[in-house]
Nucleic acid binder design. Structure first.
Lengths: 120, 120
DNA sequence: CACCTGATTCGATGAACGTCAACATAGATG
DNA sequence: CATCTATGTTGACGTTCATCGAATCAGGTG
């Protein structure tokens, strides 16, 4: 096993600091549009399981073969992983036979900040 | 007429401490099912705006009349507020002519903990 | 090159969702 | 009681979505 060469931020644009805490002020339509995409990505049970599977793997990454046991077909797993990637929550990299997915920590932190404003 | 303190936990069952942080381990199907409902509730731009409108109001509550300016019809607003209520994120109370919605702080905190595990 | 395995893409289908107009309900007011 | 305003509910319609099987692509292996 190798040392996971810090991959490029391909999906980093979605990781940009998106919005103030939900409790600070009413979101604008644009802010809501952008932020809702991330929540919606985690709003499916299968995607939530896949995401937690990747996030809880050592090193914050996992290959598809390790996490496809969520009760749906392999194409469906791929479909959901793509959705999570499009939402900026995951990134992927092919290494030989397998494709590895890893979490985007900055995005998760940003979402956390939306919900856990100062000292709640 | 009551004094509006501690509101009844009508939707409290959804507010129960739901799950470990997403990064701790792979969610079970049941955990994912339960948690996904909350994320899904915030996965719509209109609902996100309504929620932030309520959450950012002084006292953490607002009447529908104060927050219905989100670009959709009034029945649609009512529909989305119902969804947020069913997800356990909001609670409602009628006081005279108006209906007031307020956030469930414990639920928001719980969601925050899912995404912002220790010292990230 | 032929073949196997892992992963994604494609096309179709059925369910869920967001939206609105119309109607119904609750409370206030005259 | 009649009426007005503020919300909630119902039913319908079009869109989006989750899911699958089949086909396709990418890498490794004989």
């Amino acid at each position: 096993m190798k040392s996971l060469p810090l991959l490029e931020p391909e999906t980093a644009e979605a990781a940009t600091p998106c919005c103030p805490p939900l409790t600070e002020r009413t979101f604008t339509a644009e802010e809501a549009e952008r932020t809702a995409k991330m929540f919606k990505a985690l709003g499916d049970p299968v995607r939530l399981r896949l995401f937690s599977a990747v996030a809880s793997h050592p090193g914050g990454e996992a290959c598809v073969c390790d996490i496809s046991d969520v009760g749906v077909s392999q194409p469906t797993v791929s479909h959901h992983l793509k959705k999570l990637k499009e939402a900026g929550l995951l990134s992927s990299e092919r290494r030989g036979t397998w494709v590895y997915y890893r979490v985007e920590p900055s995005v998760v932190t940003a979402m956390g900040n939306l919900l856990a404003p100062a000292g709640n």
